[in-house]
Design a protein around this nucleic acid. Structure first.
Lengths: 218, 218
DNA sequence: GACGGATTGGACAATTGTGTCCAAAATAAT
DNA sequence: ATTATTTTGGACACAATTGTCCAATCCGTC
């Protein structure tokens, strides 16, 4: 009935479910908040989806505001961790830059942008950012505040090695991310799950254009 | 008290206010829906902001679902009209491509992307798209469905005239728009109103990178 | 098997929201 | 000035939601 596009970012590290009801609650809450917004989400709906009594939620996580804060913190952590795990594979000393950067881009799309954590966060930040300013200050710090400089640093490294020609690495990083997300937004804006098969194509398109813009002249 | 970042897309064509309470209601509803989401928005809040009795809303626009639909249709119209008004100034036969395309880009940012109508729509589509699928089918049709092909056609024209080198105009159009929106997302994701002064810089950055990627080789 | 902590389901008060009804008041039209 | 139309504000029934309380129950541990 409620098979929305916003799936819950599951984390199978802590399992089986009976052990951590808390985790089940957080997953369910992430779902419902993303689907209904903060105002529209009801504790009952969350409890039902988590397969848990409403009281248990209050016992473990306090009131609705606090539940929301905990969920955001949790997902922020997961998302950030996923991003930096992929970032470690950045081709800082490539043999074939286009091929390797395309592969890296595809990984980034798959594991750090398309992935449920990232999607959930972007949606919730857009929706509820104004309601919890202090919360999203920290998101800003751990999200854009760390990701973009990290990408910029890698690009600068490539430029220093003569593989790219870049005036402003920070700008180049933002544009690289924008190119990567080109078709993602178009798709995901309505719940369309971007098909796995298209991700490689998207990575190739973005990388190609990026390199045409920033490859050394001749 | 409620000075949110989401301002109401006003339309001063129909004025003074006493004449069209209907317009006041739609503006207020746009505000509150954007701020609170569909679930969190209350008719009372909308009535209060519109300076109107709650009953008047029911008289003129029926129930909450219908009110929402009318608001979306209204804003979609305005946004689409604004976009195509700017599109008429596209430099199809430029003397100095970079300069003219930069100017066009700035206009597009100012009047069709940054503007309250466009911002409102993007936010609401992201938030409530799953709840009103049929509504956003029409949005899809009038938004991306017409805008991107229109841009693609202009770019193809430039390519045909030898000003650009483009394999896939549709892809180039999506990437051009993505580059334009690069810093917009970064800013607006939290309610930061992009300062007027930065728009020209953003247009210049996007255009420069786009042309470096798609200008004819040599 | 008995203990203790977590979990459950149900009841509860208080609040909030929707949508309707209606009589009084304001506004516009004739 | 009189009539027609809107608007208003308040009352209302009904449903949903939040957060609390509590007795019954489950579950792992000793």
């Amino acid at each position: 009935m409620k098979n929305s596009s916003a799936e819950l970012p599951r984390d199978y590290d802590t399992w089986p479910p009976a052990q951590n009801k808390r985790q089940a609650i957080l997953n369910a809450a992430a779902d419902v908040f993303a689907q209904e917004g903060f105002g529209g989400a009801s504790i009952d709906a969350i409890a039902a989806r988590a397969g848990v009594s409403r009281q248990t939620i209050y016992n473990q996580l306090g009131d609705k505001d606090n539940l929301f804060k905990v969920v955001v913190a949790e997902i922020t952590d997961r998302s950030s961790a996923g991003f930096f795990r992929v970032l470690d594979t950045f081709p800082v000393a490539p043999q074939d830059l286009e091929t390797e950067l395309t592969q890296f881009s595809a990984q980034l799309l798959r594991k750090a942008i398309c992935d449920p954590n990232g999607r959930w966060l972007r949606k919730v930040v857009e929706t509820e950012g104004a309601r919890f300013p202090e919360l999203f200050e920290t998101w800003k710090e751990y999200g854009p505040g760390k990701k973009y400089p990290a990408i910029a640093a890698r690009l600068a490294q490539l430029a220093h090695g003569g593989h790219l020609e870049i005036d402003d690495p920070a700008l180049a990083a933002r544009q690289y991310m924008a190119l990567l997300a080109t078709d993602l937004r178009y798709d995901q804006q309505l719940g369309r799950q971007t098909p796995e098969s298209e991700i490689d194509q998207m990575a190739a398109n973005a990388t190609r254009t990026f390199l045409r813009a920033f490859a050394p002249r001749r």
